[in-house]
Each structure stands twice: as structure tokens, then as C-alpha cells.
């Protein structure tokens, strides 16, 4: 019989002041979850391409609509943000970037790079495809 040891529990979120790295940690997880369900759109699109013109036209009608475009735009940002934010974790995994100014710079860098790359991809998309 081992006696139950009352160990201190770590306090929950509301105890802490919101910091940038904390916010981006939550956003990293949130974008991950969004991308998880977003793969359904990717799978639907591939299956439609393999099925035939009618099925593919349905996908194009959806991605061409306002809601569809918003979802695909959000998906693009979620993907590229998760990528940039994930690269930040590689620095930390390898033991770099733990000083306060370094971690702030890495985190701002991930946030700005994610947004910039999303805008860049959509500019290319509109240039290549004429916004379709």
C-alpha cells in the first residue's frame, strides 16, 4: 500500500499572463486541428479528379464560391503558419533560441512569415489562374 502523496498541481491557463509564445503555442495546436479536418477537402478534390468531370465541377463550384474561397484561404494560412511555427520548434528541439529575445524573434518571425507566404501564394494563384 502506497500512501497517496499530495503533490502540487500546476495552475491552469487563467493564472498566467498571456504571452506571445503562449498564444502561438495555442494557435499552433488550433491550426493543426483545422488542417486535420481540412484534409477532407483535399481528399474530396483528389477523389473528384479521379471520378470524372461532373464530380470535379462540384469541387470547383465549391472552391469558387465565397465561402469556399474563405475556407481555402484559411486552409492556406493554417498550413503555412503551422509550417513556419513548426520550424520554430526544430530550433528549440535542437537546443537553440531559448533566450527571451531569441524566442520572441522566432515567434514573431513564424507569425509574419506565415501571413506573408499566404499572401504570396494567393498573389501567384490569382496571377496564374486569373482568380478561378
Amino acid at each position: 500500500m502506497t500512501a497517496r502523496i499530495e503533490r502540487p498541481l500546476s495552475p491552469h491557463l487563467q493564472t498566467y499572463r498571456v504571452t506571445l509564445t503562449m498564444a502561438l503555442s495555442i494557435i499552433h495546436r488550433a491550426t493543426g486541428i483545422a488542417l486535420y479536418f481540412g484534409t477532407l477537402l483535399l481528399a474530396w478534390w483528389l477523389i473528384a479528379a479521379a471520378s470524372g468531370p461532373g464530380a470535379y465541377a462540384n469541387v470547383q463550384a465549391f472552391t469558387g464560391s465565397i465561402i469556399g474561397k474563405l475556407i481555402v484561404f484559411g486552409y492556406t494560412w493554417a498550413l503555412l503558419h503551422h509550417l513556419c511555427s513548426g520550424i520554430r520548434y526544430f530550433f528549440w528541439d535542437l537546443g537553440y533560441g531559448f533566450k527571451p529575445n531569441e524566442r520572441e524573434a522566432l515567434t514573431w518571425g513564424a507569425l509574419i512569415a506565415g501571413i506573408s507566404l499566404t499572401v504570396l501564394v494567393w498573389i501567384i494563384a490569382y496571377t496564374v489562374g486569373g482568380g478561378r
Binding site: L46, A48, A49, A57, V121, I124, A125, G129, G130
Partner: peptide
């Protein structure tokens, strides 16, 4: 994915 923008099913199927 950018190459596929604006293409119909036949074009997309050929690239994919």
C-alpha cells in the same frame, strides 16, 4: 496545386 488552378477535370487528371 497552383498548376491546377483554373483547369477542368481532363487537364487536372492529366497533370495529377
Amino acid at each position: 496545386i497552383l498548376m491546377l488552378i483554373g483547369r477542368n477535370q481532363a487537364g487536372a487528371a492529366q497533370i495529377l
